[in-house]
């Protein structure tokens, strides 16, 4: 007992971050590494989504400007067909392709063109939304589970410190502190990963919902234009 006591005293414990990590139990190490990796992945997703959403917003604005500028839809279609990078543009292209296929050759549009175009546009919207929202669920998962994972590491670390108490039969701070420090380190990492994940998940979910609304609105307006066209032709 005396030896345990003196070693504890003479080496008050390396409380640097690396020291904490190296002293930690295997389970706590695994928790810490896992949380670090998930944090890296979270931030990768966050950065990527930031770029994607900003680009989508900008290109959607530009496309809407072009669409409502009075240009003929055929010209617009020919102009945009090559680029096809934008959500709304790809929606427009899919609808125009379906329309052209239905209208080409016969002066009177085939029956059910309206419905088909709407279906195509729905599918296109779903695809675009899926592309925008991909990997967002990971953010949600990390945001909700990382604190628990960190807590798991904490509980484990506190178990370690209780074992230290049992071994040294001593409730000194120097006996308890290392275990608690490594434990709190795990929780800190969990929160560190979870907080930005939650914040950005909410932000991106909100933004993708807005983009989805815009796409829906565009598809409604476009189908209104088509139905007017059909009525004019028939």
């Amino acid at each position: 007992m005396l030896e345990v006591f003196t070693t504890n005293l003479s080496q008050p414990g390396d409380l640097s971050i690396m020291g904490l990590f190296l002293q930690a139990h295997f389970v706590v190490k695994a928790v810490i590494v896992g949380l670090l990796i998930s944090s890296v992945w979270c931030w990768a997703i966050i950065l990527e989504k930031l770029f994607v959403f900003r680009r989508t917003r900008r290109e959607t604005d530009r496309f809407e400007q072009q669409f409502w500028s009075g240009q003929s839809l055929d010209e617009l279609y020919n102009m945009i067909r090559e680029q096809q990078s934008n959500a709304m543009a790809s929606l427009f292209i899919a609808a125009m392709r379906e329309w052209k296929r239905s209208v080409e050759g016969n002066p009177r549009p085939m029956a059910g063109v309206q419905m088909r175009v709407e279906k195509v546009m729905d599918v296109s919207i779903a695809r675009e939304m899926d592309r925008l929202e991909r990997r967002l669920l990971f953010l949600a998962t990390v945001g909700s589970t990382a604190p628990f994972i960190g807590l798991f590491g904490t509980v484990w670390g506190i178990m370690t410190s209780f074992q230290a108490i049992a071994v040294s039969k001593n409730t000194n701070l120097s006996v308890v502190a290392p275990g608690i420090a490594e434990a709190l380190f795990a929780t800190a990492l969990g929160l560190l990963a979870a907080i930005p994940a939650v914040i950005f998940y909410n932000k991106f979910a909100n933004e993708s919902a807005r983009i989805g609304q815009r796409l829906e609105g565009f598809s409604d307006e476009f189908s209104a234009i088509l139905s007017r066209q059909i009525d004019v032709r028939s």
């Binding site: 409380l15 971050i17 020291g19 670090l36 890296v40 992945w41 979270c42 931030w43 990768a44 950065l47």
Partner: peptide, 24 residues
């Protein structure tokens, strides 16, 4: 690219932490 940026960011922060909080 975003994965690379993110991992660089983390490595930077970790390095800063090691250098800054070497010990109490």
């Amino acid at each position: 690219t975003s994965v690379i940026i993110s991992s660089l960011l983390h490595v930077g922060i970790l390095f800063w932490a090691f250098a800054g909080f070497t010990a109490t």
